[in-house]
């Protein structure tokens, strides 16, 4: 199966190949967008099931990956609209501690925790732009496709996000 060209994959083969390469990164992406891991994995599985149904139209791993990203970003957006998830999200967003502890390496971890906390508090679209840019390492065009917005809107969301994060980043620098 591994030797067949992707143009001849059936839907099962496509899901198997794409699962191996992209399932975990997609769950991690969804988890960063949601801050809710159980639902993150469900959303990604939904994406793979939809991909299976649509493979006869996609027929290309790159197109399939872009399609998966769109379904995952949309799925996370829908889940966040659900009040329960929003509540969990806010409850999980604890303010960072006031001072670093004496534990070894705590300062670096504290910095990461503070940055993550600030990212979680961004509006959904701004958080999507930041996570897709700095975690998924996507180009502006790819982010625009995943978010379903124009490249200009991506630039705008990203610029606002960075501006919102700047105070905490400068304080931690």
């Amino acid at each position: 199966m591994a030797d067949r060209p992707h143009t001849r994959w059936d839907a099962d083969e496509a899901v198997t190949h794409l699962f191996g390469a992209h399932y975990r990164p997609m769950v991690r992406l969804a988890s960063l967008l949601l801050h809710e891991r159980g639902i993150a994995e469900e959303i990604v599985q939904d994406g793979f099931v939809r991909l299976h149904a649509r493979w006869h139209k996609l027929r290309d791993p790159d197109k399939a990956l872009a399609y998966l990203r769109v379904t995952v970003v949309n799925g996370c957006r829908s889940a966040l609209r659900h009040r329960k998830v929003v509540d969990a999200h806010l409850a999980a967003s604890h303010p960072p501690p006031d001072a670093p502890s004496a534990e070894a390496g705590a300062l670096a971890l504290l910095t990461q925790a503070a940055v993550l906390d600030a990212i979680r508090r961004l509006p959904a679209r701004q958080r999507e732009a930041i996570v897709l840019r700095y975690y998924a390492d996507l180009s502006e065009a790819e982010i625009a496709e995943a978010m379903g917005v124009s490249r200009g809107a991506v630039m705008s969301h990203a610029a606002r996000a960075v501006a919102a994060l700047r105070p905490i980043l400068e304080r931690l620098a």
């Binding site: 769950v27 994060l165 980043l169």
Partner: peptide, 20 residues
């Protein structure tokens, strides 16, 4: 700093073995 924080957080996420 943003990149490292996101990567650090993401690396703690495990996936279920029966997902496929």
């Amino acid at each position: 700093t943003i990149r490292r924080a996101l990567e650090s957080e993401a690396s703690t996420v495990d996936v279920r073995p029966d997902a496929l």
